[in-house]
Simulated assay, not measured.
Amino acid sequence: MKILVHITRFIVGVLFIFSGFVKLVDPIGSQYKFEEYFSESVLNIPFLIPYALPFAIFLIIAEILLGVALLVGWKPKFTVRSLLIMVIFFFFLTGYSAYFDKVTDCGCFGDAIKLTPWQTFYKDVVLTVLIFFLSYKTKLITPLKSKYFPGKVVFWSLIISSFITYYVLAHLPIIDFRPYAIGKNIPKGMEYPEDGSLPKVHDFMLEDSQNDLAPEILKMKKVVLVIAYNLDKADFEAFPDIKKMADKAIKKGYKVYGASASFSDILQMTIKKFDLPFDFLFCDETTLKTIIRSNPGIVILNEGTVVDKRNWRDIEDLKFE
């Protein structure tokens, strides 16, 4: 029985740590996912949407800390009960999503591993069973090493997780699992897989008032995209520096475009207010959120390949050939 408990404890702990970590490196992605869950078309609790980011951060760090606590044997009863509460919450959430086909990707493993709603639900069923088993065998969950070692490990896990969260929110994800990561080629991502499923990039369009300019732009060697998925929510303090960056890029022979899902009136107002030397093209908001976790953010392309991308706070780190 002890061996079975240790195996179960290891599986559950590692799974929670992995699940938390792949979301910790990109908490804004989890924010967007919870905003989708809270929306009127899913759970119909839109008043929680403004709290999606702190809610996501709390759950992400809780996943990691509880996974670590289970592995090192810190406060077994509290840890297992907390895990049980969390997994039951996810059990009902993913069950609702799968049954009513509300959210096609739960975001359980961020963008690292995509699961269908039913795959996610069955995963949570197995986890619920395993944690229920541990809840009856907490006496067999013993701490590792000295009496104070588990507490120290959990404490430092909290410190490290908090630091990573702060860094990622101030800059960009430290690991990018999306098809727009640095080094990825967007046209190649548009190719259909052999199994006939949707390509990883299937909604990349950059439209002016008449045409989709994306095919033309993806053939250019020197392109800068200034992405602001929603100007109403953008950090306007960024635009004076973006103006300087754009002027510098144009002198270096780059084509500069803005990309946004906002209405034309606010786009024109922003261009005029900051004397921006480029026009905005329309792109789907979800696509822009996927491309870069910054509003605004800067992406440099070379024949469709992402060669650099930066949060606007790191605009000085951009290098133009």
Rank of each mutant, 00 (worst) to 15 (best):
K188D: 15
K188H: 13
G189E: 15
G189R: 11
M190T: 04
E191Y: 12
E191W: 10
Y192P: 08
Y192K: 15
Y192N: 10
P193N: 08
E194F: 14
D195A: 07
D195M: 07
D195R: 13
L198S: 12
L198P: 05
L198T: 11
P199R: 09
P199L: 10
P199K: 15
K200W: 02
K200V: 11
H202M: 06
D203N: 14
D203P: 04
F204D: 03
M205L: 08
M205N: 05
M205Q: 13
L206Q: 04
L206F: 09
E207L: 04
E207W: 07
S209M: 13
S209P: 01
S209I: 04
N211T: 07
N211I: 08
N211R: 15
N211Y: 10
D212I: 08
D212E: 09
D212Q: 08
D212W: 11
D212H: 10
L213K: 04
L213G: 02
L213Y: 05
L213C: 11
A214K: 06
A214M: 08
E216K: 14
E216H: 10
E216G: 13
I217N: 00
I217H: 01
I217Q: 00
L218N: 06
L218S: 10
L218K: 07
K219D: 02
K221E: 15
K221V: 02
K222M: 04
K222V: 11
K222S: 10
V223I: 12
V224R: 01
L225S: 05
V226S: 01
I227W: 09
Y229V: 02
N230L: 01
N230M: 04
N230R: 09
N230K: 09
A234W: 11
D235H: 09
F236E: 05
E237N: 12
E237T: 09
E237K: 03
A238V: 05
A238W: 05
F239R: 00
I242N: 02
I242C: 06
K243Q: 09
K243D: 06
K243T: 04
M245C: 11
M245R: 01
A246S: 14
D247M: 02
K251Q: 03
K252M: 11
K252W: 02
G253I: 05
Y254E: 05
V256W: 02
V256K: 00
V256S: 01
V256Y: 08
Y257S: 03
Y257L: 06
Y257I: 01
G258F: 11
G258Q: 06
S260K: 01
A261N: 07
A261D: 00
A261W: 04
S262Y: 00
F263C: 12
F263L: 09
S264P: 02
I266Y: 06
L267S: 06
L267M: 12
L267D: 12
L267K: 15
L267T: 11
L267N: 15
M269S: 14
T270S: 14
T270A: 13
T270N: 03
T270K: 07
I271L: 12
I271Y: 03
K272G: 15
K272Y: 10
K273F: 11
F274W: 15
D275R: 12
L276E: 09
P277I: 12
D279Q: 14
F280I: 09
